[in-house]
Write a protein that binds this DNA or RNA. Structure first.
Length: 382
DNA sequence: AATAGTGCCAACCGCCGGGTT
DNA sequence: GAACCCGGCGGTTGGCACTAT
């Protein structure tokens, strides 16, 4: 099948965008929405192909884009998600609020890949170059489990990413417009010295790490279970709660009754009639989230044994309980949350957890050493 | 000061999958 | 089911900025 190349038409401009072109595109999209990208250039008075307009919008002009240096937490997220997902930048981007897949891809290729390489870690496999994780006979079973876990966790993350994308529709959070920004003004926002708030999406990593960690510490139990993870709907922690959904086909969602533990003025969604609630400040947000979750519950049955997964919820707004998710994986975890903290703080936790953690935990310790050494950050999120 | 080398990133390219006709 | 449209994705590249020699 021969496809017409949208940018092959004579007279269409390529290359860097001018401030005037940015202005035209921005003004048009803000007033009309992008609609059909193919039809947009003519309507907006641009001598560009629709694809070029779309890329310019999604990668630069879109108002909800954060530019500038990647934070320590973002680096950790990228590395860890890349270990799980590979080069699926769009999926990774859904877990990094306000970052584009293109930006993440560039950052990986120009920074993180090289750093891992220098550390002697294969940036593709995330294994030590000289050694292969789990290559020893004693680890083969664990490696198989890890691989199995990674496969379904990868698929689930991707499914969650779709859900996040859908849910973004209801999160109007437009920062100031970029009107007036120019192609030549593509400089990093170095004024944002203060570290950003901890993205909730990192909790999915904690959940995952908790599983991996417990597997290592428990000698890879046969009764391995899979974690659910959190969905990141917004960077605004106070407005949009962390949501855990039971990965059980019988999961039901309903708007909660008056006994929901939500503050006045908020609306609760009840999960499974099990006294598990999430509170929303706006009714329409709750309704939309419920709708999205209703239509997406099937996503959560992709684990090897969905019926064995326990529901868990994290009190995400409780910043004093950063390990809540991991603790929620009660049947999976062997070590205490303190052990986990120690592990992700790079401490030797063999004493408290037993097992062969030191060897298997080298990679994550290395990652932490990597980011600890980074001048961009001073503390670990874990 | 001039040149070469390197890093970085916006933008392009080609492919793919979903939806529509 | 085939043909086509369209948007999205990941890989790659061109060119600017910066650094080293």
């Amino acid at each position: 099948m021969v496809r017409s190349q949208c940018c092959d038409k004579v007279g269409l401009k390529k290359g860097p965008w001018t401030p005037e072109e940015d202005q035209k595109l921005l003004a048009y999209v803000e007033e009309h929405g992008h609609g059909s990208w193919r039809a947009l250039p003519a309507k907006a008075g641009l001598q560009r192909c629709g694809k070029s307009c779309r890329l310019r919008w999604t990668n630069y002009l879109r108002p909800d884009i954060k530019r500038g240096k990647f934070s320590l937490q973002e680096e950790q997220t990228i590395i860890q998600l890349h270990a799980l997902l590979g080069n699926r930048w769009s999926v990774i981007a859904t877990h990094l609020p306000k970052r584009t897949d293109n930006e993440i891809k560039n950052y990986w290729n120009t920074h993180l890949k090289k750093r891992l390489d220098k550390m002697g870690i294969d940036p593709v496999t995330h294994k030590p170059k000289a050694d292969s994780f789990g290559s020893g006979s004693g680890h083969s079973k664990g490696a198989a489990h890890l691989s199995h876990m990674a496969q379904w966790e990868s698929a689930r993350l991707e499914a969650e990413a779709r859900l996040v994308r859908e849910s973004k529709v209801i999160i109007p959070n437009p920062p100031p417009n970029r009107i007036g920004s120019t192609a030549s003004a593509q400089v990093s926002d170095k004024s944002s010295a203060a570290p950003p708030a901890r993205p909730q999406c990192l909790d999915v990593l904690k959940a995952w790490q908790g599983v991996v960690f417990s597997m290592l510490s428990a000698g890879i139990s046969d009764s391995l279970e899979s974690p659910t993870s959190t969905l990141n709907f917004s960077e605004n922690e106070s407005a949009i709660p962390l949501i855990g959904v039971q990965k059980n086909s019988a999961t039901t969602l309903a708007f909660a009754t008056n006994n929901a533990p939500c503050n006045g003025g908020t609306t609760a969604i009840e999960f499974n009639s099990g006294n598990q609630f999430e509170c929303f400040e706006k009714l329409n947000e709750a309704a939309q989230v419920k709708q999205n979750l209703d239509s997406s519950l099937a996503l959560h049955d992709i684990s090897p044994d969905a019926s064995n997964h326990n529901a868990w919820f994290d009190s995400a707004t409780n910043e004093n309980a950063p390990m809540g998710i991991v603790e929620g994986l009660s049947e999976i975890l062997v070590c205490t949350s303190q052990d986990h903290n120690a592990f992700f703080a790079g401490e030797n936790i063999n004493d408290s957890c037993g097992g062969n953690l030191e060897e298997n935990g080298n990679y994550w310790n290395s990652l932490l050493n990597l980011v600890d050494a980074s001048p961009t950050g001073t503390s670990s999120v874990f």
